[in-house]
Write a protein that binds this DNA or RNA. Structure first.
Length: 282
DNA sequence: TCATCACCTGGAGA
DNA sequence: ATCTCCAGGTGAT
């Protein structure tokens, strides 16, 4: 089996996509919506608390073709070479949506803590594989919660975002099935209208849970990467504060350079640069 | 349209 | 011990 076909669990889970994962005795456990996943690396085996078929690891993706497509330059080539087992994940959309709304101006460890508290306070407690877990709550549950309850999970100013965003799901204003079927631009325009969701967070939700592999979240790390390695390409577009128009301009250039699987290239570059700076993950 | 700034909170570094 | 600063941004001037 060629190296790129093997999924590297540690690398993938520690790449900033998911927050509710823990490793217990060489086994990874994670919360994905109402489902709890249990995964071992060797042998690679997945089991779950619910019997629902979801390809969490995107094993349907043609990695040979995707990697071929994104290796446009030496930087991405190096990143792919260093983390050949890194993958994008296919997350439960509502959990992903709330997770990244919580991520604004917060560290990964802080985000993890907020989400953990949300599951304990609002999720369903279950025992799986001999361990206790709490599922991610439904939109209705969070929509009906009070700001005070949400604040007690350490959300701070994000509490009001989470409540409103949950209400938008309950009312049907946000329909994840519709967004999955829509093209990138249409879906993005819908998401950025939600209170608490801007360009970056919308792209995270699109990439990690709504099948938009061309989405390329631009955050302070990505911006740093573009400045450091791709200055010649993005030159004028990169200013200190990034406006909506600049963001679109950058995204256009990104897709032109990295191609239709740009989101994959983002994941490799992000992983590489954070490792390079010894940043912590979960 | 664009640039600043406040914002909850917890953890790291001075 | 106490303080400052920052963290995968966003909304309001």
């Amino acid at each position: 089996m060629q190296e790129f076909k093997k999924i590297d669990l540690d690398t993938t889970i520690n790449s900033g996509q998911v927050f509710l994962w823990d490793k217990i005795d060489d086994t990874w456990y994670g919360v994905d919506g109402s489902n709890i996943l249990k995964i071992t690396q060797d042998p690679f085996k997945i089991s779950s608390s619910e019997k629902k078929a979801s390809d969490f690891f995107r094993q349907d993706d043609n990695m040979e073709k995707i990697l071929q497509s994104i290796k446009k330059d030496k930087i991405v080539k190096d990143a792919v070479l260093r983390f050949p087992g890194l993958r994008l994940l296919r997350q439960d959309p509502f959990q992903c949506y709330i997770s990244f709304i919580c991520s604004s101006n917060a560290s990964i460890q802080n985000i993890k803590q907020m989400l953990k508290k949300i599951t304990i306070k609002f999720g369903k407690r279950i025992i799986f594989g001999g361990h206790e877990f709490h599922t991610f709550p439904s939109a209705r549950k969070l929509a009906n919660s009070t700001i005070a309850e949400l604040s007690s999970c350490g959300l701070g100013f994000r509490a009001k975002y989470v409540k409103k965003a949950s209400q938008d799901v309950v009312s049907g204003r946000i329909d994840f099935n519709y967004l999955k079927k829509s093209d990138y631009k249409t879906a993005k325009n819908v998401l950025v209208d939600v209170y608490g969701i801007g360009d970056k967070i919308a792209d995270c939700i699109l990439l990690f849970s709504l099948e938009k592999i061309e989405a390329f979240p631009v955050d302070r790390w990505t911006l740093r990467i573009l400045r450091k390695y791709y200055f010649d390409l993005f030159d004028e577009s990169i200013s200190r504060s990034i406006t909506k128009k600049k963001y679109e301009e950058i995204h256009e250039k990104i897709v032109r350079h990295f191609g239709p699987f740009a989101g994959y290239s983002q994941q490799f570059l992000f992983k590489m640069e954070r490792e390079l700076n010894n940043k912590k993950w979960l």
